[in-house]
Amino acid sequence: MKTKLYVNNEKMVAGITLKDLSELESNNTALHACKNLEDVLENRKKLASYLQCELSNFVCAKQTHSSNSYKVTMKEKGRGAHLMETAIPDTDALYTYEPNLVLSSFNADCVPVIFYHEKTGVVGVIHSGWQGTVKEITLKLFKHLVQAENCNPNDFHVQICPALSQEKFEVDEDVYVKFNDLGYADKFMHYNKRTNKYHIDNQLTVKKQCMLAGIPEEKISVDRTCTFKSEDGFSYREDKQCGRHLCFIMKR
């Protein structure tokens, strides 16, 4: 099971699965984007074994590029783990205080975010494609955690995981306008006169949203691996039939 870990200690484990040509469906973990459900379930079971838990510990959402988040309790244990139909609907961010739940986010170019809060113990994952970014899912969730869950923003630790690079994230004016309307993304965009296209850095825009929520810059790490250019990456922009990474965090 090819996996990159960002945190692995007595309190939690967090990371992302990677593309691996030697595995079934190249280590695809997404039931909504696969050729064979059983192969994907086998990959998920391998990840569960690697994390020393069961697949029934996983919690998955039906991602819709929304700005919706969901507070996961033990009642949600196993949702979306074996069947898409049981996934938490219309949700792109999950957070929990509960141990032994593997919060899961599926990505292929979109920006995955993993976070934990030192004092309260809350952990979570966010899926922020460009639509989620312009809807400010990351900023909204962190504001909610600060206001409703009494999280001091200084105590967050955020990991922004591999995504499509600015070089490869090429868009037309309609998407550029949506980012520009945010009022703080202009530094993360440039125009290519030769192609008449705009290039946007979605990762750094998401990082800015974390900072706007009050999280100190030094508490935010960014993995600049490009999912398009890396042999370890699934890229929807490169291949519409590609699999997905599974970005995860589990409290122990």
Rank of each mutant, 00 (worst) to 15 (best):
K168H: 11
V111D: 11
P89I: 00
D90E: 11
M84V: 13
V111P: 08
S104D: 07
A108P: 07
Q166N: 13
L83R: 13
L139I: 01
D92T: 04
A148C: 12
P89Y: 00
N154L: 13
K168V: 01
Q159A: 12
V122F: 03
R79K: 15
A163N: 11
W130L: 03
K77S: 10
E170F: 13
E170R: 15
Y95D: 01
A93V: 04
C161Q: 15
W130G: 00
D155N: 14
I114M: 05
C110Q: 09
V158G: 11
A148R: 10
L145P: 12
A108H: 10
D155F: 09
T96H: 00
V123R: 01
V102L: 01
P89E: 01
K119F: 11
L83S: 12
H144N: 13
L83K: 14
N100E: 11
G129A: 09
F106D: 07
E173H: 07
Q159M: 15
G129L: 06
V146L: 11
I88K: 04
Q147A: 13
K135E: 02
V158M: 10
E167T: 11
H117K: 03
V134D: 04
V146Q: 14
M74E: 15
E170H: 12
E85F: 07
E136N: 06
K143A: 15
S128R: 02
V123I: 09
G124F: 01
Q166S: 13
S105W: 00
Y97P: 04
H117S: 02
G124D: 01
P89A: 01
W130S: 06
I126V: 12
D174K: 10
F115A: 02
H157I: 14
L103Y: 02
L101E: 05
K143H: 13
N154H: 12
M74G: 15
H82P: 06
F156E: 05
V122S: 04
H127R: 11
Q131S: 15
F169M: 13
D90R: 10
D92I: 02
S104T: 09
E173K: 09
E98D: 09
E136I: 04
G129H: 04
H117G: 07
V158D: 14
A163E: 08
I160W: 06
I126E: 06
V134Q: 03
A163Y: 06
V146K: 14
T120F: 05
I114F: 08
I160D: 10
D109E: 05
D155S: 08
V113F: 00
I160E: 09
P153A: 03
I114R: 00
Y116F: 09
E170M: 15
K135C: 00
E136Q: 11
F169P: 10
N100W: 08
